[in-house]
Design a binder for these strands. Structure first.
Length: 862
RNA sequence: GCCCGAGUGGCGGAACUGGUAUACGCGCACGACUUAAAAUCGUGUCUCGUAAGGGAUGUGGGUUCGAUUCCCACCUCGGGCACCA
């Protein structure tokens, strides 16, 4: 064997794989034979398909690919029918911005970028099935993205509503939230404004409850579940109605009002009770138990009732001004104001607390959000931080109604938002516990127990070019008409400029030839929708397409879906938890309801990887100039070394800093593996011709020594097989590699290595370093790829130790070590421990107690 | 502010379910091989102490025969949410 030349080996091996197509997956029933020839269960492994940026891969990208590749390769060796696909999530802003700058069509840029990404990924020897490669910007793909959108539309889950977009007044461009984070335009740095615009929405809130509940059905990391649950924000509470009284003099203008007031002192506020004009405010609260402490009511400035009240309030001007100001405030300003609360009372309007019929003032304040709950709250300053702050500022009464054992009755100096026992809540409810009171009081006032969510509907349109056109037509007569299936896909037209127009419309709007069309229904004049979809669209269902990527009748064949889905293991980034991961679960459930996919949930198991940071632990970024390109690493060290290093550098789920200095350790390990192979090759040559002579010449003692050395090596090998097998399943790649390093070091020390043992080592290393192991495998005379060989089994007997060392402690301090038999009886162990020299030194006369933990430790107290 | 996660040598990190803390790797030092260098191999490498022994897993308490691991409080860093009633 020649010197280890990673370049030659890796290129050659990769070519062979490509030729034989060993990673290409076939679905059963297609007639094609599976590469492994051992058709087991299916296993669908998935990584988040990349956005092919112009910068190419940096070393952080492949970490998840390698991780899942290790798993896929192991599963394949275990005989499973593995699907491990890849594609490109290629719609997106950087490509579009590049097009705006250079005038080059995004499709051309995309092609160039995907070519580069593909080359880089192939260079790493990931076992993707390239025959299933997909691209979200391919009309054959986005035809189905559009088709699914139309199903949403037909079911009423895609609708148009007024919403706000980020508008950069300097660039005259509408920005996505990602581009305007912090209220600053990513492109020019100026402040963005909110502009009201009609937007397409997807009614994800209709699925909020199921998206929350069904998390119980899947195997996700707890923190992912928690984060999704927090995002969905389910909370149970009560809806309670406050009746409104409007001052009578406001109803009858002028001179009579005074008289009136005199005549009807307390009943001066008349409920406006003509059938059409009886006002009520519905509030949402999770703390109905505090209802007796509600001393005012607050509406969001945007609340629809506010405009209705406007004619009747005494301070109309003031109120109008406040509303104006609130609307103008961008979200950023609202939060920048931090906790300083503002509001205006609606003078002349009172609400009636249904618990005690007390009249309380009504305010509008922007600390109440218009789109959560009912957009109106009852304020209980004694038991809510925000209400407390507001009440202090505007001098409103604070009435304590919940007490804890520690809290004394009386005017609270501060708020208490915990639970407790009710006080000042009428005879009926005093001394009741919070939990019971919530139900009872809600019932008492005729309220309703309801569930609310923080989740909002999904703003689904973008005024952009590089996305899937929304396949609807606006007909003068028929309204919004979906494009018929046979006319899909609606392809992106050629445009001269990719810049959005001054009006904030998509660049598509300026192409009248494309925009003006006929109504599919009546044939009359119609205009196309010019908005495009966000890039979360294509990624919401891509994993379904992999099962049947070339189908042109349906997005994926039902039988194939039935075989392959759900995804057995999906690895991705934490940053997608509340976006992509939630969105795609929503789409999947929708398709499930249409009986188009066979499972309720798309992903059975989800794991996440940590980022690779730059040297020193800072983020890897172009601007910091610390981006490491895998091309360079592969050139100098080889793909196998890079793969091993990325798996070894730290725990897979955690962020780790890149260190080019440390890679050498992984390279040394790979070279060690190679050196052992060379030794075995020599050994085999030697044995082939001289083996008999050899045995005769060897003295007995040497022989015995050798065999005991090789016996203990065998034990170590089997322990390592076990550890690596288990570690891979738990994505503990770093400790798996450390175990193999130990094995390699020991193996190199031994004179006569059993070639079969070495091959087993190669097999467990193969998922990590697929090239070198494949090369040596063939060199050792194997005829079929190592990646199709059967995953080695460990021998339980060899894994178990007969003799073990345990620590002996005296009063909890380790004083000695003793050798015992595995599972040796307690008395024997004690005897050994109590006669140990080092132990005796530290013992006092009387022994109080001896604690023995089987096969682990013995602790003597004296 | 709230919700997650993490804090262990010079550095990346190991330690199963409460049982010998610092595996493995990097770096560093010394040694072997070599005319020499590289490569490789070997030895050492938390800290105080000549030693016996003691002290160390962010800090302070607690539970326990025994705590990196469990509990309480606090500090620092990373991530998410951010007036959600």
């Amino acid at each position: 064997m020649k010197e280890y030349d990673h370049k030659k080996i890796e290129l050659r091996v990769q070519k062979e794989w490509e030729k034989s197509g060993i990673y290409n997956t076939t679905s059963p029933g297609s007639g094609a034979k599976l590469a492994t020839g051992r058709l087991g269960r299916k296993f669908y492994a998935l990584i988040e398909f990349p956005y092919p940026s112009g910068d190419g891969l940096h070393v952080g990208h492949p970490r998840p690919y390698i991780g899942m590749d290790v798993i896929s390769r192991k599963k394949r060796m275990e005989g499973l029918n593995v699907l491990y696909p890849i594609g490109w999530d290629a719609f997106g802003l950087p490509t579009e911005n590049y097009a705006i700058k250079t005038g080059i069509h995004p499709a051309i840029v995309t092609k160039k970028n995907t070519d580069n990404f593909r080359r880089q990924i192939k260079m790493l020897g990931i076992s993707f099935d390239w025959t299933r490669e997909i691209n979200t910007t391919d009309p054959k793909y986005y035809k189905w993205t559009q088709w699914i959108f139309l199903q949403f539309f037909k079911k009423g889950l895609a609708y148009k509503a007024k919403s706000y977009i980020n508008w950069c007044p300097s660039c005259k461009i509408g920005l996505a939230n990602e581009e305007a984070s912090g209220g600053i335009c990513e492109r020019c740095g100026s402040k963005t404004e909110k502009r009201e615009k009609e937007q397409w929405m997807l009614a994800i809130t209709k699925y909020a409850d199921r998206l929350d509940k069904d998390l119980d059905l899947v195997d996700y990391p707890e923190r992912v579940k928690i984060q999704q649950r927090n995002w969905i924000g389910k909370s149970e509470g009560s809806e309670i109605v406050f009746k409104i009284k409007i001052a009578k003099q406001m109803l009858f203008h002028g001179s009579h009002s005074n008289l009136n007031m005199v005549n009807e002192p307390n009943i001066a506020y008349a409920e406006k009770s003509t059938a059409s004009q009886s006002f009520k405010i519905k509030v949402f609260t999770t703390r109905a138990d505090t209802l007796f402490g509600a001393t005012y009511v607050v509406l969001a400035p945007e609340h629809p009732l506010v405009t209705k009240f406007l004619g009747q309030v005494k301070n109309k001007k003031e109120v109008e001004e406040y509303i104006k100001k609130a609307k103008k405030k961008s979200e950023i300003e609202r939060t920048a104001d931090e906790k300083e609360k503002t509001g205006v009372e609606l003078k002349g309007i009172k609400a009636i607390n249904p618990a005690n019929d007390e009249e309380v003032p009504v305010f509008i304040a922007d600390y109440v959000l218009p789109d959560y709950g009912t957009g109106a709250i009852m304020a209980v300053p004694a038991h809510d931080e925000r209400d407390f702050a507001f009440a202090k500022k505007y001098n409103l009464p604070i009435r304590q109604v919940i007490t804890d054992a520690d809290l004394l009755e009386g005017e609270p100096k501060d708020f208490y938002d915990g639970e407790g026992i009710l006080i000042h809540s009428s005879k009926q409810f005093d001394y009741m516990g919070s939990e019971e009171a919530r139900k009872k009081i809600t019932e008492f006032v005729g309220g309703k127990i309801v569930t609310k969510f923080k989740l909002r509907d999904w703003v689904f349109s973008r005024q952009r070019y590089w996305g899937e056109p929304i396949p609807l037509v606006n007909c003068e007569k028929c309204g919004l008409v979906p494009v018929p299936d046979k006319d899909l896909p609606i392809k992106l037209p050629e445009v001269k400029s990719y810049k959005p127009t001054d009006t904030g419309e998509s660049p598509l709007a300026s192409i009248s030839k494309w925009v003006n069309t006929k109504c599919p229904k009546c044939g009359g004049k119609a205009k196309r929708e010019t908005d495009t979809m966000p890039n979360w669209a294509g990624s919401s269902w891509y994993y379904l397409r992999y099962t049947d990527p070339k189908n042109n009748k349906i997005f994926a064949d039902k039988k194939k879906l039935k075989y392959w889905t759900p995804i057995d293991w999906y690895n991705g980034g934490m940053e997608h938890t509340t976006l992509h991961l939630l969105y795609s679960r929503f789409w999947h459930k929708f398709l499930y309801d249409l009986k188009l996919v066979p499972t309720v949930e798309p992903y059975q198991k989800r794991t996440s990887h940590g980022m690779i940071l730059g040297e020193g632990g800072v983020k890897m970024s172009k601007s910091l100039g610390n981006v490491v390109n895998p091309d360079d690493i592969v050139k100098t060290y080889g793909a196998d070394t890079l793969r091993v290093y990325e798996m070894f550098m730290g725990p897979f789920e955690e962020a780790v800093a890149w260190s080019t200095e440390s890679i050498i350790g992984s390279r040394r390990f790979i070279e060690k593996v190679w050196r052992i192979a060379e030794k075995i090759a020599k050994q085999q040559l030697f044995h082939g011709s001289h083996s008999n002579l050899n045995v005769v010449h060897e003295p007995n003692i040497a022989y015995a020594e050798k065999s005991s050395a090789s016996q203990s090596l065998k034990k170590l090998l089997h322990k390592t097989i076990k550890k690596v097998s288990e570690d891979i399943e738990n994505m503990r790649f770093n400790t798996a590699i450390s175990a193999m390093m130990i094995l390699a070091t020991e193996m190199e020390k031994v004179e006569n290595i059993d070639a079969e043992d070495y091959k087993k080592f190669l097999q467990i290393l193969a998922p990590f370093a697929p090239h070198i192991t494949e090369n040596i495998w063939y060199d050792l005379g194997e005829k079929k790829s190592i990646h199709l060989s059967a995953w080695p089994k460990w021998d339980e007997d060899l894994v178990k130790d007969q003799e073990i060392k345990i620590a002996v402690q005296v009063n909890g301090r380790v004083r000695s070590e003793i050798l015992i038999q595995m599972d040796e009886i307690e008395d024997e162990v004690k005897k050994k421990a109590l006669t140990d020299e080092n132990v005796l030194k530290h013992l006092n006369k009387d022994i109080k107690r001896v604690i023995y933990v089987k096969n682990r430790v013995i602790n003597i107290l004296s």
